[in-house]
């Protein structure tokens, strides 16, 4: 079974994320990492491969330096990576991103395409549905558990009313939730081996996307203005030095919450 996993490079969790007021795009200059919840998708792909055999291919759209983040997933055990890196893709919205990824996924010809729960910068938790529509494949999203059968995949997901169990024939597109598994840590051997695994960096043209159909030119959403967040009351932050419990108690007593 060939499994493609869509993974994204995002600003590292320690970076204070901000939008560049000039370009009105996310500032991507600081420390970067693989989107945390995409690790769950990589882990799930590895588990399916370990049970059924096959190949795990990472697919990503991002700047060239994103290969550094892809290496982490290669170290976990993914077999190879395909990165669509193109100046013309900068400023893509959902339309351009889904078009480029769908194009790359068509080249990979996977039986199963996995997505993570949400990107920590865009936080749309929507991309898979656009990609599934472009690929004309069935979709199961936000799966908290997955089971691969003979030519089918079944996922269980939480909704506002309980749980839905959804089944689809392969090839299919599936997004997993961050509760589905505990991502493994790369072994030393995995880290060493990651450097020599095949990594392809390709352009929008290579995936059949015209200039103008992605990036800012292809975007149909715009950022008009940036403003300060809605104001909120004062907050206090303390570090526990052994007295935090007492400080919490004092705080709630002072506010007559006890």
């Amino acid at each position: 079974m060939k499994i493609a996993v869509c993974v994204k490079q995002v600003p590292d969790a320690t970076v204070h994320k901000k939008i560049d007021p000039a370009t009105k795009r996310l500032d991507r200059f600081g420390e970067a990492a693989l989107n945390p919840t995409d690790l769950n998708a990589v882990e799930e792909a590895l588990r399916i491969k370990e049970a059924a055999g096959g190949e795990v291919v990472l697919v990503s759209l991002g700047p060239e330096k994103a290969v550094e983040s892809l290496r982490k997933a290669l170290a976990m055990g993914a077999d190879r990576a395909v990165l669509v890196a193109d100046e013309g893709a900068a400023g893509s919205d959902l339309l351009g991103t889904s078009r480029a990824l769908a194009g790359a996924l068509e080249r990979v010809e996977a039986d199963l395409v996995l997505f993570g729960q949400a990107s920590s910068d865009g936080d749309g938790a929507v991309l898979w549905a656009a990609v599934a529509d472009r690929l004309r494949r069935p979709l199961i999203s936000q799966a908290a558990s997955l089971e691969v059968g003979d030519g089918t995949i079944t996922g269980k997901r939480q909704t506002e009313h309980g749980y839905d169990v959804i089944s689809a024939p392969l090839p299919a597109v599936v997004a997993v939730s961050d509760a589905i598994n505990e991502p493994r840590y790369p072994s030393l051997k995995g880290i060493m081996g990651a450097k020599t695994k095949p990594q392809e960096t390709i352009s929008l043209g290579d995936v059949g996307v015209d200039a103008g159909a992605a990036g800012e030119a292809g975007a149909k959403t715009t950022v008009l203005e940036l403003g300060p967040p809605p104001s909120r009351g004062d907050s206090v932050k303390i570090e526990d030095d052994g007295s935090a419990a007492q400080k919490i108690l004092d705080y709630v007593v002072e506010r007559r919450l006890l």
Binding site: D93, L94, G124, S141, T159, K220
Partner: peptide
């Protein structure tokens, strides 16, 4: 926004080549 509506909205965006803003 809901689990179902988010997927409908994004699928529709791709189908119609229409811009989607969320949240």
């Amino acid at each position: 926004a809901s689990v179902l509506s988010a997927d409908v909205a994004a699928g529709l965006a791709a189908r119609l080549e229409a811009g989607l803003n969320w949240d």
